[in-house]
Structures are given as C-alpha cells and as structure tokens.
Amino acid sequence: MINQFETERILARPIREEELPTFLNVIRSNRFFLQVSGGSPDYPLSKLEKDWKEANENPGECMLGLFEKETETPTGILTYLKHNPRDGFPWIGFLIFRRDLHGQGLGREVTEHFLDLTCRRLGWTSIHLGFLKVEMKELFNLPENHAGERVVWVMERELASPH
C-alpha cells in the first residue's frame, strides 16, 4: 500500500487520531460532497472516526490526510481500496479538498501523482474513480438541485504499464 507521498504542493500521510476534528472541518467545508454522500452540514465526527478506524484496521484500505507541504495545514483527504469486493478493482474511495482550495489544480496534481505511484509501485493496470465510463448506477440521495441528475457513472482509467 502507498501510505505516504509528496507532490509539488501536497504532502500525503496517514491521519493521526487527534487530527480528525480538523479533517472534519475539511469535509464540512465541501457542500457538494456532503450532498452526494448523504451527509449534512453537521456531518458527525463519529462517522469520520468510524471510517478512519476501518481504514486503519483493513490492510487493503487506506485513508490519507492531504496537507499543504510548507505549512502542514490540512487540505484534503484521499481514501482508496486495493481491492473493492463489489467489483474486484482498485478504487479511489474519495478525494476531497477544503472548499476554499477548489479550482487550484490540487485534485489533478494529487490524482496524477497517486496514479503514477500505483502503477509503478503496486503494478495496478487500472483504477476506478472518474475516467472511462464502465458502469451506470442510479443514486437516490443526490440533491434535487444536482442538475436533475440522479445517475452517476462508475469510471475507470487504464494506467501505463509498470515496465
């Protein structure tokens, strides 16, 4: 598993238990994430603690805190599964950033670097998140104002050969 890496602007490492309240603020700042995940603005710390504990206990799952490299200020969260039992593929569970950091290219920076690492270090040849449409699923918890859509696409991206 990849449990630490750095990009040009971001340091990714495991979240320590005492940092969870700060990362809760990261989640609460992202209104769209809260809507599509069925959460509310008062997303409970207990849910984040449960997810964090599960990620730490499951050897095939990882939750990484994303920090501004120079200040180590929490900026986001990346979770991934080595093998999703539903379809057998590696998955990025979610990648979320503080709302005030959207539009700065951090998602692309982290994603591209992480995908390169998974290909080179883990030998992954594809990963599911947001790339090539491979499956359609209907979601019932999307908000009405989500452009009227209640369908999401499971996406896959092929990675370069690790050779």
Rank of each mutant, 00 (worst) to 15 (best):
T71N: 02
V151Y: 11
P85K: 11
E70F: 08
T125V: 01
A147Q: 11
N141L: 14
T125R: 03
V26E: 11
P162V: 00
L122I: 00
R157K: 10
G93N: 12
H146M: 05
F97P: 08
R28D: 13
E49M: 10
L139Y: 12
E49G: 12
E49Y: 01
L34N: 06
N145V: 00
P21R: 14
H163R: 08
R13G: 07
R99N: 13
T125Y: 01
F67Y: 15
E149A: 10
Y43V: 00
E57W: 02
S126M: 04
L159K: 02
T7N: 05
L159P: 02
T75I: 06
N56E: 07
K47E: 15
I10E: 04
E8M: 03
H146N: 15
G76D: 04
E109S: 13
P21H: 10
E156S: 10
V26F: 06
N145W: 08
P162S: 11
I15K: 09
A12Q: 01
G107Q: 06
N25R: 11
R31V: 15
C119V: 01
H163Q: 10
I77V: 12
I27Q: 03
C119P: 01
N145L: 12
D100F: 00
V154D: 04
I127L: 05
E72D: 13
E72W: 05
